[in-house]
């Protein structure tokens, strides 16, 4: 396994006020890479979606812990969001655009679609009853040659 150039890990409770904290932490972590504003926005949005899923779905009826880690490999950032909540029965179904189990709460069902469009890759590992890990990968500094 490759050694990262930099790494961080934070653990926090699944409280909705921590959604902002989580995305800001990742934004701060990649600041040394001097990302473009849109790259920073994309990654923060994807992290916000992954963390919100833990709060809204994984720990639906309880408060649990969320582990957020980020690693930098050159210009690539790998973010992992891990919970030990209820898990997802059917990951493929959960990732379908506009699919939501909570329409009454005005969840748009776009969480995974946002992660997929705003990152280079998204992987989801889940086991019902023991939790879910979402891994987001994004290459930074894809600068245009025509500057």
């Amino acid at each position: 396994m490759k050694k990262p150039d930099n790494a961080m890990k934070i653990i926090f409770l699944s409280l909705s006020e921590n959604e902002r904290f989580a995305r800001s932490a990742v934004g701060g972590f990649i600041a040394s890479k001097d990302p473009r504003i849109d790259e920073l926005g994309d990654l923060k949005t994807a992290v916000s979606e992954a963390v919100t899923n833990c709060i809204v779905h994984a720990y639906r009826d309880c408060i649990g812990t969320i582990e957020l880690s980020a690693r930098l490999y050159g210009d690539e950032v790998v973010v992992k969001v891990r919970d030990t909540g209820c898990g997802i029965e059917d990951v493929k179904k959960a990732m379908e655009p506009l699919y939501t189990t909570l329409p009454d709460e005005e969840r748009s069902g776009l969480g995974f679609s946002v992660m997929e469009s705003f990152c280079d890759s998204v992987s989801v590992k889940s086991r019902p009853g023991s939790g879910t890990t979402v891994t987001l990968t994004k290459k930074l500094g894809k600068r245009s040659l025509l500057k």
């Binding site: 926005g41 949005t45 005005e106 748009s108 776009l110 946002v114």
Partner: peptide, 13 residues
């Protein structure tokens, strides 16, 4: 200054 898919839910509602 920031919006994720929760904002889409807000607009849809």
């Amino acid at each position: 200054s920031f919006m994720d898919s929760s904002g889409v839910g807000l607009v849809m509602g």
